[in-house]
Design a binder for these strands. Structure first.
Lengths: 146, 146
DNA sequence: CGTGAAAGAAGCTAGTC
DNA sequence: GACTAGCTTCTTTCACG
């Protein structure tokens, strides 16, 4: 990827609402040139979209946890992502190497909800779980190095 | 938090570049009314900012890993977040309950970089590490339920 | 791939209820 | 808090190098 594109991506990571005019000023390109490049970055899937960064506590989800899961039956077909896709409390699902098969990141309002969520995950996906509760988050979602 | 605010937050999570005009149409408010509400949400820290969602592979960081860390000397003052704050490969740092003290999420270009990064983390923070390599990511950064 | 111009849309700020 | 109004700024397209 070209240096100008990298620069544009970096600027949009820092401020997803930056105007094309400002992007142009910062990169030394004309407004329409950045516009074109951003469109291409979106089409190629380099930029997947844009989102607000929200304080989870402020929206009533103060409890974050990581749940590592392992199937009861390792020979069964592995369709966990689909099975759990409608469980909206799951923010992320990573297939991992190591002792367990997946790591899930979840957000809930209270410990009681975590308990119900774990039961739901175990029965929906046929897995055993190991849960690590987050106490605090010094930082999260820092921009990558690009 | 009020229902209208919740709705606005949900819309901005789905599309961080949505215009105030469209937010108004979707919520039944006038443009300036949404504008005002969004400003307040930003001031209160409910909305922390806006960012582009980028495909990490496409920007040259195809390798993601979770690193759980435990201090060599549990009685030493715990300033890991500050000690590691300039390590840009670290995307997130969570203090956690359980066997280990912190979980770090990192992104690098290649296995060799992960090796160097681990050495750097161990010496900077005085910790032992346990690393879980991500093989694939069915989903990530899904919007919370609000 | 880049530029520049021009029309239309959206952002922003007051003043009013 | 929300609305209307009006000025400013940005977006978006297109013709051209």
């Amino acid at each position: 990827m070209e240096d100008l594109d990298r620069q544009i991506v970096r600027l949009l990571l820092a401020d997803g609402r930056m105007s094309y005019t400002d992007l142009g000023r910062s990169t030394g390109l004309s407004t329409s040139a950045v516009h074109q490049r951003v469109r291409r970055l979106e089409q190629r899937g380099v930029i997947r979209g844009y989102t607000a960064v929200v304080d989870c506590e402020a929206v009533g989800l103060p409890l974050t946890a990581f749940i590592s899961v392992k199937p009861f039956d390792p020979s069964a077909p592995d369709d966990l992502p689909e099975r759990l896709s409608q469980v909206r409390e799951i923010e992320a699902c990573h297939s991992v190497a190591g002792d367990e098969n997946y790591i899930l990141k979840v957000r809930v309002a209270a410990p009681g909800e975590l308990e119900h969520l774990l039961a739901r995950i175990r029965s929906l996906a046929g897995v055993s779980t190991r849960t690590t509760v987050v106490l605090s988050t010094p930082y999260e979602a820092r921009p990558p190095i690009t």
